[in-house]
Design a binder for these strands. Structure first.
Lengths: 233, 233
DNA sequence: CGCGGGTTTGAGCCTACTCAACAGATGTGG
DNA sequence: CCACATCTGTTGAGTAGGCTCAAACCCGCG
């Protein structure tokens, strides 16, 4: 999508020097933890979530390889969100100072971070609209499509059938529903012939109808990056 | 909160050269419009929203003076959201290229934009959690507190009593409720002695209890900006 | 073989929605 | 200055989508 120069590439490499491996289920940081680092997710899938004081959980975002994690630690000393591994993962931690230096040395990378933020913002506002204004079925359909597209971004060979990698409870926490109701909505989508479920995999049988019933918009498409500043090296 | 240097200050002034005045109700941009500009909101209050295809509306964010508007136009040619004036407003438009130049010339301002993005992200995720996991009453309470705090940021003299400046329909579209139910929730908060309503104004009678019933967190507090890069001039 | 995590299904309930009517306030044109 | 339209807020009655509680099932795993 954007070609980095050698210098920029090396700057990123430098940022990601260290590496940490996480097993599925491990939490990288817990809400309100005193934190200072940020992370690049190098492989695997993670999620960020918050706990409300009635004990319920809201999943804010599902992250996959290449995402920046915990960027909000840049400005808050106490983490505003919990970050947990959904699969085995590797992350590369880096310090505020490193990011700060990067911004100064590589304005074009600074701009790309801004771009990244805006994509994420768009995705968040889509979810906001979904939670506020769409039915349970639409929300479940939307998360299915989003997960498939994510999978495909990392592996072009992914087609109609893919491994969801989320429990129904997790889908519920992401969509603001109960696990029980998620189950019923999946069944309904299946009964209507929109999807099929087979041993941990989901297959789209009528993607068109699925998209129609979910208001889904792919925010990684149709980006315009012509305005990016010149690179320095 | 952060002291700008003369150079930085002048760079921002330059960005905000032009000015445009908007009457209440006017839309600055409509979803899917072909756009290229971004804006600084100089005075007044605006909102960004999306329309779903069943005709319902979700308000994504309420903006007040000082906010950056339509930053997502940076990366999308077609606006992902509608932006409308909630009161008479003035905005200062600027181009992608201007922002791009700013990032190169003033890395510390680039960092501040990043900071701004993260605050906004935190606010969005709070709302996401509210829509997904809290009751109607809690959501209404939360928006009241948020609006009061916003008003106070611009005018330190604002205390328990303030002008809400939103119709019940707008509150509904922001919280994912119907106007009718918003009305009932306001009445309930009033009956319970948490608020009083008097001619367009809201007064907090028990702010502690209001905050308790709403999970509200003020994301503009407790920022740590010690890591910001040195300014250049 | 028993255990635990995840899934499935049923029954009944409650929160928030829909529809509808009305009251006030504001504005507009005649 | 009145008649009328429009927008916002208020209240009631009935409905429904999604929740709770509970039980059973499936499957991989120690």
């Amino acid at each position: 999508m954007v070609v980095l120069t050698d210098m920029e590439y090396r700057a990123l490499e430098h940022l990601e020097q260290r590496e940490r491996h996480l097993r599925r289920g491990v939490t990288l940081q817990r809400e309100n933890d005193r934190v200072g680092e940020m992370f690049v997710l190098r492989s695997g899938r993670m999620m960020s979530s918050v706990l409300l004081d009635d004990g319920s959980r809201q999943i804010l975002r599902i992250h996959s390889a290449g995402d920046l994690l915990a960027v909000s630690n840049l400005i808050y000393d106490n983490a505003p969100e919990t970050i947990t591994a959904l699969s085995d993962c590797t992350v590369a931690p880096f310090e505020r100072a490193a990011l700060s230096a990067l911004l100064v040395a590589h304005p074009r990378l600074a701009a790309l971070i801004l771009v990244y933020n805006q994509i994420e913002r768009a995705a968040l506002t889509d979810r906001l609209a979904a939670l506020g204004r769409t039915s349970a079925k639409a929300r479940v359909a939307a998360i299915l499509i989003e997960m498939r597209n994510r999978a495909r971004m990392l592996d072009k060979s992914v087609g109609d059938s893919f491994v969801l990698g989320l429990t129904q409870e997790e889908i519920g926490d992401a969509t603001g529903l109960t696990a029980v109701h998620v189950n019923r909505m999946l069944r309904q989508l299946e009964d209507e012939g929109l999807i099929a479920r087979e041993a941990g995999r989901v297959r789209f049988r009528d993607e068109r109808a699925l998209a129609r019933s979910s208001n889904f918009v792919d925010r990684y498409e149709k980006l315009d990056l012509g305005w990016l500043p010149e690179s320095r090296g």
